[in-house]
């Protein structure tokens, strides 16, 4: 479906030039003492928000940068960064 994203380097481009990199779950958990449950949550579990979520994208067919954006999954539009997420 139609999507445009604002690459911090290349500006607004077609969504098909990017790779989705998952919900923003924060830095990798420390390996020492990590439980399987923690691993599962980090590696696989998603909130699947129907609304605004912060997520990672890579401009794979362009500059190659990974960056975070906030996107409304219901309208598929990028929205200004929301700090409360």
């Amino acid at each position: 479906m139609a999507l445009n994203l604002n690459c911090p380097i290349c500006g607004p481009r077609s969504g098909y030039e990017f790779r989705f990199g998952g919900e923003d779950k924060g830095p990798r958990p420390a390996e020492e003492g990590a439980t399987t449950a923690l691993w599962l949550a980090y590696a696989h579990l998603n909130r699947n928000v129907a609304g605004v979520q912060r997520e990672w994208w890579c401009h794979k067919d362009g500059c190659g940068t990974w960056f975070r954006v906030c996107r409304d999954t219901v309208t598929n539009c990028e929205v200004p960064t929301v700090d409360t997420l």
């Binding site: 890579c58 190659g64 940068t65």
Partner: peptide, 12 residues
């Protein structure tokens, strides 16, 4: 590969 390296070091 480039994408993979950068993805897994994106927070660092």
């Amino acid at each position: 590969t480039v994408e993979w390296f950068r993805y897994h070091t994106r927070y660092d």
